[in-house]
Amino acid sequence: MCKVRVDAEDVEVEAGLEETILEALRRCGYAYRWGCRRGGCGVCKVDLLQGEVDYRRNVSELVLSATERDGGVALSCRARPRGDVTIRLRDERLKKCYGILAT
């Protein structure tokens, strides 16, 4: 298990080995801006402040350029944390969707 911390939100969730950042946050009832959830649109990009990610599936250079990757941008629907990571959302706040159902 790796920890996914969301900067400025006081939120930390655990991600399974195969889980992406987006999958882990969704599973725990959180939402933020995402699009196709299949690596094609780039809507769910986040800034990776700390830690490493990898991509089990191909990510098109059209969607996430090498420059962006090197500059610490992660495509959160495809990026799997390799160890603990801290991310920052872009111009938005994390939403807690499950409300009273959340533990």
């Binding site: 699009g35 196709c36 959830r37 299949r38 690596g39 094609g40 649109c41 098109s60 969607v63």
Partner: peptide
């Protein structure tokens, strides 16, 4: 819906 590459 989206195909596995994100094409709608």
């Amino acid at each position: 819906y989206f195909d596995p590459s994100g094409n709608r």
